[in-house]
Design a protein around this nucleic acid. Sequence first.
DNA 1: TGCGGAAGTTAGGTTGGGCTAACTTTATTT
DNA 2: AAATAAAGTTAGCCCAACCTAACTTCCGCA
Lengths: 147, 147
Amino acid sequence: MPAAKTTAKLAASQAVEDYLERILELINTKGYARVVDIAQSLKISQASVTNMVQRLDGEGLLHYEKYRGLVLTTAGEALARNITRRHQLLTDFLKLLGLDDEVIYHDVEGMEHHISPPTLRAIEILTRQLERQPALLAKVCKQTHEN
Amino acid sequence: MPAAKTTAKLAASQAVEDYLERILELINTKGYARVVDIAQSLKISQASVTNMVQRLDGEGLLHYEKYRGLVLTTAGEALARNITRRHQLLTDFLKLLGLDDEVIYHDVEGMEHHISPPTLRAIEILTRQLERQPALLAKVCKQTHEN
DNA sequence: TGCGGAAGTTAGGTTGGGCTAACTTTATTT
DNA sequence: AAATAAAGTTAGCCCAACCTAACTTCCGCA
């Protein structure tokens, strides 16, 4: 069999994607991800985080040791990077349209879980093309803020 | 108090939006929305539909009479039209990018619940502008399907 | 007109993902 | 090193939305 398939993935829930995204972000910014930080970042209770972290360990997305912390597995980090990329590309695209940061953050947080690779790719390419069309973008921004 | 607020809205869940959207669609295409049709359309059981329909009646989004059918209220129809519009505009936008119908349908079904009015507006305006840029669009489509 | 099948409903169960309260473990501070 | 504070965990709960099984109502037709 040529071209082995190494990525399993198999559909992570919205919640799982949110957790992984935040965990990766915490690790990138402070070097580690504590339960208390994840809870604060997602605005949920520590108890809920402990629960989910145990589940994610069971699913092989991170290694978790009671009271000692956690690290992402290769699979977990792959998923986290993937959702982070979706977040970034969507944010870039909406920024181009001159939308408010609050609005962008809110909408992206919802939409990022529902965008498939082909759509993401098309938006990425469109974004790159639009970046070279300042006149067109200016028109869109202006019209958007009219009225 | 000037400028009375007539629209309440108050955040409908994803599920509620999906139900209303399908109900409106059924009414528009066959003139009525039976439990069995809604169930089939959403791929869930009739029992679940009955449950939700009772809830939506309680929330004033439709009038429901046991065994006799249902009609959308003004509020329900407003919500349904709103979500339908989001669906349509997102679909139009993605079609412009040359994406496959299956992909579009799937992604829109997820994203439509998470797009705010400002973002929707910006995308609508962008879509209209892009429609007059066939060369740009061709480039995006081509690059999207490369590789 | 009454009966069988389709449609609709009810009751009760499951699952995911949240919560609080109470407890344990770890870390800090004196 | 003991006390206290902070972090983490457990147990038990709740709610939205789904499900199946069993029952009821409705309707077309012999």
